[in-house]
């Protein structure tokens, strides 16, 4: 199981590296906010912690983690979209 997970990690890191190398410096700020929003996927782990009856402390920790992760997802995708909306091509002069 561990070895399989390490395979996944290494391959995903490699894919990430290849894709992100091609992102132009123009879009580096949206890239940061986008990866930040995507890493909000830790929400799925937080949800399991907040919703699986493991005692009050575990639930509260999970709850705060859900809040943090959701904040990043919602805020991250919104701000990325807001930024990307601003990047416009030159309109041909009349």
């Amino acid at each position: 199981m561990l070895i399989l997970e390490l395979y996944i990690f290494v391959l995903a890191g490699f894919v990430g590296y290849m894709v992100i190398t091609k992102v132009p410096p123009l879009l580096h700020t949206p890239l940061m906010s986008a990866t930040n929003a995507i890493s909000g996927i830790s929400l799925v782990g937080s949800m399991a912690a907040a919703g699986s009856h493991r005692g009050t402390i575990a639930t509260i920790l999970g709850f705060v983690a859900v809040v943090c992760a959701t904040t990043n997802i919602v805020g991250g995708f919104l701000i990325t979209d807001r930024m990307l909306k601003m990047f416009k091509r030159d309109v041909p002069k009349k």
């Binding site: 997970e5 990430g16 940061m32 996927i41």
Partner: peptide, 16 residues
């Protein structure tokens, strides 16, 4: 999925 997204995020930060 956490492993993958973390790796994507990590690779991006590292590259930058």
């Amino acid at each position: 999925i956490l492993i993958i997204c973390g790796a994507l995020d990590g690779a991006s930060g590292f590259l930058l």
